[in-house]
Amino acid sequence: MTDAPLLSVHDLSVRFGALAAVDGVSFDLWPGEVLAIVGESGSGKTTLLRAIHGFLRPTAGSIRYRSDRFGEVELTVLDEPRRRLLARTEWGFVHQNPRDGLRLSHSAGANVGERLMAAGARHWGNIRAQALVWLDRVEIDQARIDDLPRTFSGGMQQRLQIARVLVINPRLVLMDEPTGGLDVSVQARLLDLIRRLVAELGLSVIVVTHDLGVARLLAQRILVMQRGRVVEAGLTDQVLDDPQHPYSQLLVSSVLAA
């Protein structure tokens, strides 16, 4: 643990016309920490994640990020070239649907290698070697390196997306319902994989999920969102085992065993 947060979100709001999708949200993310944002669909959690990544502009508030290359930057006013440079070199975004995070008409190896090439790698042999290492780390047969992801199962595609995100060794990873569209048996494998990689790489992660089991397994801390606001925040076991807010109690009681 270090004594400065990697990311500080303060009083952040995202409005779509009259609708406040995210309404005055504040939190810190510390290096090496996994933070889960839970809530039902429509609670604003995915909008919050997308605003942090810069896929959409917040209406108000601040997002301070401690960058490796730029020092502390205010993301809400950062110019696009630098924001995209950060997205290429320091961040990763895992989409719920792997098709949104992969190039389906390019090989698995190219999908992993592209992030390296985007960060400036120009040695084919090294790119290839790293892609092989990462396919292995996400439990994809290395012999499939030149196959197209559209020939992969949903679980494999999601693991390939994770390899593509992690290959550049990002400091901050944002995950939007990473196990969302998958069968339960496939989910378990993916979750374990994410859990292990996060621990091995010491990643800082924000994972958005409606699945409290995912939050329990991956996160040290939880934010509960309802109608764009954070209604409860705390340690994962505290929020799940002793929820204080009525909405948190509803969420927890709706699950068979989180």
């Binding site: 340690l235 085992d241 002793d242």
Partner: peptide
């Protein structure tokens, strides 16, 4: 016991 561990507030 759970309060001592920080699980219960």
């Amino acid at each position: 016991l759970r309060a001592l561990y920080g699980t219960y507030l």
